[in-house]
Design a protein around this nucleic acid. Structure first.
Length: 505
RNA sequence: GCGCCGCUAGCUCAAGUGGUAGAGCAGCUGACUCUUAAUCAGCGGGUUGUAGGUUCAAGUCCUACGCGGCGCACCA
């Protein structure tokens, strides 16, 4: 963590903006005066929140007699001649006023405070808890010291940071925007609720490989890397599915994982190259069972994280997550919207004509199932308003890991859950027949050999596992970032604390 | 990957048709013992994203590149 680039200028002082030069100079002056700008410790006795909690409603101009030592970041200063005020804030956002009066701290300390403390510095203040004449809860300092000098000025508190700065310098965003701090906590609350819900239903959380010798479990383009020690090409996983199923074969019949997937594809307001996903598998359940469980998980997470099932976004849109969610048929809803009966038997030529008529651009090589999904996305999705919708029963040729529908030929037992206009989760009755699974993966491998970079590969070890017998199971993949988007109304890059961004310069 | 728009002080933004680059906050100096987007007086701060080009003159026009946003394509 400290290999200097050879061409890095170690002493860039001359080129620095004025405000950074001044702050560096103050750091020197602190050192020269024997005041450590970065002490290893400051003797705090309370947190800012602790002081506030201890004195929730004092009258104006009260002295409590209690002495405390507190530390916080200076967010705002009002220096008058002999009495200085500063607003200190702790990391979670609680604020407390510090007051330094000539009478209490003496001329030397008051002068050094005025000369050396900037907005953004972490300072320590020791003194009595009082309220000011205006009633502001304050610590009237006997002494102060620097806890950590800030060398860069904070942005203007009253103007919104540019989106670019917020994402690239999330640390500044977290300092400046309560919403950014809240997002970090909402995310934790959501993930914790999902874990709690699954744990209470007997699911076991496991961790499966991020580095895989063979990518599978989804149709997506992987990131490629390599192991020096093994002289081996490796892939960052695009999904944990094939390993979680191995676990089910091994007897972990209720299993889940919450972790990152990596897909080497485009990024926009609903896609991030690395994204968090919950996958869970339940033996002796089918796709309807796991659909019901998915709804419960989302409802429980919403209540835990945002306290309501009627989520209102900043744009005023209302997303009602309560109750039982409607189901529609993929083929049925698409047929209705297009005005032509579409079934798994509908030919490619007719589907291509329907796409073309609707102005949908499709790959000339697209298979029939893909075309049906295109028609569905083009004609039906926009009609979902504010309610989550389960879209039931997908084409077999786009779903190589899903069991054939028990009654409808050409379909598989798969649903997609649409919330807020995007795919929030998908669930299957899992394909557990090793012979059929092998045929499907051989077809995928053929697509891959034909140049389809998203096709799955033939994972012999996965097939070997299935050959030992996997119980009938339902499985679900649920996007964590997208759930956060639903719960907060924000874009995916706001739900991820440190999303991938291109380097500056 | 393609198209459109943007990039100006530490931050957020201004600067008809090309003519000496400005404001608010922040900063510096001074005043002020109850302020809380403090107030008052004064003062600094810019390679206008980068590199070229046109022009007497470029923040402004042209070209390329970088980064971002939006739309399209791909995907969840």
């Amino acid at each position: 963590m400290s290999t200097e680039q050879p061409d890095v200028d170690v002493e860039p002082e001359e080129d620095l903006p004025e405000q950074m030069r001044i702050r560096r100079d103050k750091r020197e002056r602190l050192t020269d005066a024997g005041m450590d700008p970065y002490p290893v410790q400051v003797p705090i006795t309370s947190t800012i929140a602790g002081v506030r909690a201890a004195y929730p409603d004092l009258e104006l101009d009260v002295a409590t007699g209690e002495k405390v030592g507190i530390a916080g970041r200076v967010m705002f200063v009002r220096n008058t001649g002999k009495l200085c005020f500063a607003t200190l804030r702790s990391g979670e956002g609680t604020e407390l006023q510090a007051m330094l009066s000539l009478a209490n701290v003496g001329e030397e300390q008051l002068d050094s405070w005025k000369a050396l403390v900037d907005i953004g510095d972490h300072v320590f203040v020791s003194g009595e808890v009082i309220t000011s004449k205006r009633g502001e809860l304050s610590v009237l300092a006997d002494t102060w010291s620097m806890a950590a000098k800030a060398l860069r000025p904070l942005p203007v508190a009253h103007k919104p940071l540019s989106e670019d700065t917020r994402v690239r310098q999330r640390y500044v965003d977290l300092i400046m925007r309560p919403e950014a701090r809240q997002m970090a906590r909402t995310r934790v609350a959501t993930v914790a609720a999902l874990r709690r819900s699954l744990d209470s239903r007997g699911f076991l959380e496991i961790e499966t490989p991020m580095l895989q010798t063979m990518h599978g479990g989804a149709t997506a383009r992987p990131f490629v890397t390599s192991s020096n020690a093994f002289d081996l090409e490796l892939f960052l996983r695009i999904a944990p599915e094939l390993f979680l199923k191995r676990a089910v074969v091994g007897g972990i019949e209720r299993v889940f994982e919450i972790n990152r997937n990596f897909r080497n594809e485009g990024a926009d307001s609903t896609h991030s190259p690395e994204f968090a996903m919950l996958e869970f598998y339940q033996a002796y359940a089918d796709y309807r069972d796991v659909a019901a469980l998915t709804r419960e998980l989302i409802q429980e997470a919403a209540l835990a994280a945002v306290g309501t099932l009627e989520v209102v976004h900043a744009d005023g849109s209302v997303h009602d997550l309560s109750g039982v969610w409607p189901e529609i048929s993929l083929y049925g809803s698409t047929s209705d919207a297009v005005g032509v009966e579409i079934t798994p038997m509908t030919g490619r030529a007719e589907l291509l004509a329907l796409c073309s008529k609707a102005g949908i651009e499709v790959q000339p090589t697209a298979i029939a199932g893909k075309l049906v999904e295109e028609l569905f996305e083009h004609h039906v999705i926009d009609s979902f308003e504010g309610r989550p919708v389960f879209v039931m029963d997908f084409p077999v040729d786009t779903s190589p890991l899903v069991r054939d529908h028990r009654t409808d030929a050409g379909k598989v037992e798969k649903w997609d859950l649409y919330v807020n206009g995007y795919e929030q989760a998908t669930g299957y009755s899992e394909l557990v027949d090793p012979i059929i699974q092998r045929q499907r993966l051989v077809e995928q491998a053929a697509l891959g050999a034909g140049g389809d970079v998203e096709a799955m590969r033939l994972d012999e070890d996965f097939l070997r596992a299935l050959e030992y017998g996997m119980p009938p199971s339902g499985g679900v993949g649920l996007g964590i970032d997208r759930l956060l988007m639903t719960l907060t109304g924000l874009g995916i890059r706001e739900t991820i604390l440190f999303p991938l961004v291109k380097p500056e310069r």
